[in-house]
Design a protein around this nucleic acid. Sequence first.
DNA 1: TTGTAGGCGTTATCAA
DNA 2: TTGATAACGCCTACAA
Lengths: 344, 344
Amino acid sequence: MHKPTIQDVARRAGVGVGTVSRVLNNHAAVRASTRESVLGAISELNYTPNPHARRIAGGKSYTISVLLPVVTTEFYVRLLDGLEHAFQEARYDVAIFPLLDRSRLERYLGSHTLAYQADGLVMATYNLTQLFQSGLGLSGTGVRPYGGPSVLVDAYAEGVDCAYMDNLLGGRLAGQYATQLTRFQGGGHLYAVWVETELDHLFTTRVFSERRSGFLEAITATGARVSGEYVSSFDSLNARTVAAQLLDEATLPATVFASADLLAGALLDEAQARGLVVGEQLKVIGFDDQPWAQGRGLSTLHQPVEAMGYEAAQLLLSRLSGHEGPPRARRFEPRLIVRASTGG
Amino acid sequence: MHKPTIQDVARRAGVGVGTVSRVLNNHAAVRASTRESVLGAISELNYTPNPHARRIAGGKSYTISVLLPVVTTEFYVRLLDGLEHAFQEARYDVAIFPLLDRSRLERYLGSHTLAYQADGLVMATYNLTQLFQSGLGLSGTGVRPYGGPSVLVDAYAEGVDCAYMDNLLGGRLAGQYATQLTRFQGGGHLYAVWVETELDHLFTTRVFSERRSGFLEAITATGARVSGEYVSSFDSLNARTVAAQLLDEATLPATVFASADLLAGALLDEAQARGLVVGEQLKVIGFDDQPWAQGRGLSTLHQPVEAMGYEAAQLLLSRLSGHEGPPRARRFEPRLIVRASTGG
DNA sequence: TTGTAGGCGTTATCAA
DNA sequence: TTGATAACGCCTACAA
């Protein structure tokens, strides 16, 4: 009445343990009929392989560490979905390490915990590769250089595999659309609200600055002009304050590109409080396509986040199975979704 | 040039592997001198035990899952510190599972991931035991009942081991102090701001309602009275809005108990914006003692969070080493810290 | 108090 | 395409 092992499965299916192992790991050389019977035995016995035995026999940890910013956005839920989907297919476990604060990260990486023993490392949003290169960054803090391969997701950097969102393009799409709105659909003056990030040297992301660059680039290209730019931190209170300031100063009708849905939402709130007609007097374009964006009719940029996560995982998995060669970068494209907030 | 194993250590120290293992696991019967030499060999070789080998030999996973709300408060950093400290001492690994959203939790627990294979479960703030009892909660969602022992931390419930903060007491302390301020130190009228939690059935915490109960209880006992109560969500924007509303309506001088530092901070901000003299015209008592509380001179309730985490871990560890018996609850007490915001 | 040997559940290697 | 068998690194009797 113990947990069934690979032996039990082998006996039941009338084959050797080697064969069962082959089926488990999708090794090619297994006759279809035997595979069937093995699979049958597995489900009859309700067998699940013991991961630890695997790890010791295989000499690997079959575990991937994911360093994840602690932000409750749907973004990271979707990102994890993509990552875990890919890793599960490849029979890798995922250990999530929340980037709660810097000192925790240091202590953690200095120790011999699960995550540090991982075969690979996924860094989301923040490029912490510096932490893992000897001599750099946190020398003296006990952070040893990380041996295994790593991949960046939602961030781009030279010298590392990465899967990133083309925020430059996203900004450009927003800029082109905004120009179109102001020129042909009575959008009036053009404004923008940017996200200010105030993290330290290491905890830095270019996501928002690129949205800005793309937007301004498109504006310049189309010969339009921005009547005002505002900056908010990624925080609903500050966003609301900035939204109020913008609406105080703006000439209506106006079109506003808010470089994150959080900011766009604050703008919608403030507009509503002032009795403005969104979509007419005020057109708003967001970025992210948060779950509530559809309900509130916010035009915004949707991002293939799961796909990005999935691809990042694939990049890492290919390294784990021996792929050599120069770093690869996979680009993903946001897509403009037009809704009522721009009169669409 | 491979990673040193227990064999290497044994050879180097001139002992058997059994002895090394005994040293590693603090088994009593080892002569002090041999222990020394083994320890010496370990550090010379820079040996670290292979956790997976341990897991398979021991038949346990030596891993604890921690279900953790995704809130970037110092609270959870400290809680994890306490938990991990205790678990590391006992050579257990900690797998953190961030409660990003409900569906992820379900999928996760339904699978055979690391965390589900854990020897024990720590649930922080949210009592999700229902999820792990067959037939209840998420029947049909693939969530199987959880076999191992579990412990609640920062939450109290019957029938489970738990380590909790006495928020009732915290509220009471705030209430007594507030009464004293209004009676003898020109605190004027008394107000309170509560936290509203809008989570679903399972993701529920009584932390805030208890702070309220305790406060009101103390007020009643001292014969004081509350001139106004306000409710805010745990969000800086809403907190600020509510703070403004309170200051619009309040009669100064006033004393306000804000049941979370987040709310207290908003109050300080709004007061400052209005040019009020905090500590004189407006006295504020917070709850949590966030890192910034000292700098801003906020009187608040400090909580022994690390100790609570440590104790929760001990409760779980004792179960893991066979302790039977009825559920135990360990209580921890907040402590009032008087600073400038109450004129202290 | 210590060493030896068997076993934990896999994967990998080698014949067959 | 398969089955047997040797690792993998550790823990735990059991014997000394």
